[in-house]
């Protein structure tokens, strides 16, 4: 083991190398590594957030679908109710109309019956007059006996 100036040379070299490493190699590498670590953990957190958001959105979608279903059911129920009401109303209206028609028809019939009766009465009075004329063999003044005839007609 011979010690010589190589010892000093090596010490100087060592110091210079460590200085260079400390100044130009270690800091940028460490900075890059730490930055990448941060980026990766950020990415992972973002992924987790995304997952959570997705789950929330899915839950919301389910809720919305349920709401929509309920609303649809309500609308259908209302529509059915309304339809029933309309049918009932239509039935009522039809019944009323039918009643009205029946009443009108009845009135018409009554009127016709009355007019027929009137007509018959007149015919009968004429026939009665003719009969009486023939029986009495003389002319009966229709005008003179109008009051009696009207009386008769009213009695029929």
């Amino acid at each position: 083991m011979n010690f010589n100036a190589t010892l000093i040379g090596q010490m100087i070299t060592f110091v210079v190398f460590v200085w260079f490493c400390m100044k130009y190699i270690w800091p940028p590498l460490m900075a890059a590594l730490e930055e990448r670590n941060a980026r990766i953990s950020e990415g992972l957190a973002a992924a987790q957030r995304g997952q959570q958001d997705l789950e929330e959105a899915q839950a919301k979608v389910g809720e919305s679908i349920n709401d929509a279903k309920q609303q649809a059911q309500e609308i259908i129920n209302q529509a059915q109710k309304r339809a029933n009401e309309i049918v009932d109303e239509a039935k009522d209206a039809a019944r009323d109309e039918a009643d009205k028609i029946k009443v009108a028809a009845t009135a018409d019939i009554d009127q016709q019956v009355n007019s027929a009766r009137e007509h018959l009465r007149k015919e009968v009075s004429v026939i009665a007059l003719a009969g009486a004329e023939q029986i009495l063999k003389r002319e009966v003044d229709a005008n003179a006996h109008a009051a009696v005839l009207d009386d008769l007609v009213a009695q029929i």
Binding site: F3, L7, G9, Q10
Partner: peptide, 8 residues
């Protein structure tokens, strides 16, 4: 070389 190892 001991010079090297001792230098360090």
């Amino acid at each position: 070389d001991p010079n090297i190892t001792f230098g360090m």
